[in-house]
C-alpha cells in the first residue's frame, strides 16, 4: 500500500527531514509513527500526499507513483488518501454536517449522495447529535472526529493522521484511537504519527520510530519507549 525506497527530504536551508529512508506498509496495516519532535514524522506523512516533494528516492502510495506524479495529478492521489491534521482545520461558518459534506461537495457529488454519505459518516464518528453545531460549539475530541469523518468522505484506501490526539486528554484520545481502529478493521490502512506513549503502549500495533529522519526501530506489537 505504501512503499518508500531510499527517500530523502532536504529543505532549502539544508535541514534534513528524511534521510535515505526505506520501508513498506501493507494494505490493512495500522502503524504508529513515533519519535522526538523534529524527528520527521510530519515530513514522512507529507511526502506521502505530496505536500512535500522528496529530494531523492521513490515513493508509491495506493499504486500511484508519487515521486513521478505531475503536479496537476496530485488531486487524484489525494482522493485516495484521507488526511487528518493535528489542527482539525474546520470551517467555522459551517456546521458539522456541512464540514463533512464539504469534501463531497467539492468533488461534485450529487446532493442526494452528499446527504446519504454524510449521514453514514456522522453515524460512524458518532456525531449525530452535533450535526448542526458549529466548530466553536464542539469539544476538541468532537472536532477531531469531524475532521476524521471528512477525511473518510471519499472512501480513501489510506488514512494518514498527524497527531490526531495531540490536543486531547487521555480518555478522548482513547476514543479517537478506537475510532481509527474501527476504520482500520473496515479495511483502511492507517498511519498515525503520535507523541502519545500511553496509547501506543496500550494498543499494541506496528511501531515505526524515527530519529533525524531515519528509522531507528520497526516492530510489530511495539511499544513507545521514551528516551
Amino acid at each position: 500500500m505504501i512503499k518508500l525506497k531510499n527517500v530523502s527530504l532536504v529543505f532549502q536551508g539544508g535541514s534534513v527531514a528524511i534521510s535515505n529512508l526505506t520501508t513498506t506498509v501493507q494494505e490493512g496495516e495500522f502503524v504508529y509513527l513515533v519519535g522526538h519532535s523534529g524527528s520527521g514524522k510530519s515530513s514522512f506523512l507529507k511526502l506521502l500526499y505530496k505536500e512535500y516533494i522528496a529530494t531523492k528516492g521513490e515513493i508509491e502510495v495506493a499504486n500511484i507513483d508519487v515521486s513521478k506524479l505531475p503536479k496537476w495529478k496530485i488531486p487524484l492521489l489525494r482522493r485516495k488518501i484521507g488526511i487528518v491534521t493535528q489542527e482539525p482545520q474546520l470551517l467555522e461558518n459551517r456546521n458539522t454536517f456541512e464540514n463533512i459534506a464539504f469534501a463531497l461537495e467539492v468533488m461534485g457529488a450529487l446532493p442526494e449522495e452528499i446527504e446519504a454519505k454524510t449521514n453514514t459518516l456522522l453515524d460512524l464518528v458518532e456525531l449525530n447529535d452535533s450535526a448542526y453545531k458549529y466548530p466553536g460549539q464542539l469539544s476538541g475530541g468532537q472536532q477531531t472526529r469531524v475532521s476524521i469523518a471528512r477525511a473518510l468522505a471519499n472512501n480513501p484506501v489510506v488514512l494518514l493522521c498527524d497527531e490526531p490526539t495531540g490536543n486531547l486528554d487521555p480518555d478522548l484520545s482513547i476514543q479517537i484511537v478506537s475510532l481509527l481502529e474501527k476504520i482500520n478493521r473496515a479495511g483502511t490502512t492507517v498511519v498515525m504519527a503520535t507523541h502519545d506513549s500511553t496509547i501506543v503502549n496500550r494498543r499494541k500495533k506496528r511501531v515505526i520510530e524515527l530519529k533525524d529522519g531515519k528509522i531507528t526501530r520497526d516492530e510489530q506489537d511495539g511499544s513507545y519507549i521514551v528516551r
Binding site: 496537476w72 488531486p75 487524484l76 492521489l77 489525494r78 482522493r79 488518501i81 488526511i83 491534521t85 482545520q89 470551517l91 464539504f102 469534501a103 467539492v106 468533488m107 461534485g108 471528512r150 477525511a151 468522505a153 471519499n154
Partner: peptide, 16 residues
C-alpha cells in the same frame, strides 16, 4: 485561505 487549503487536502482539482 482555509477553505482552499481544505479543498486541496481532500483532492479537489485545481480547475475547480
Amino acid at each position: 485561505k482555509k477553505e482552499i487549503r481544505i479543498m486541496r487536502l481532500v483532492g479537489a482539482s485545481s480547475t475547480y
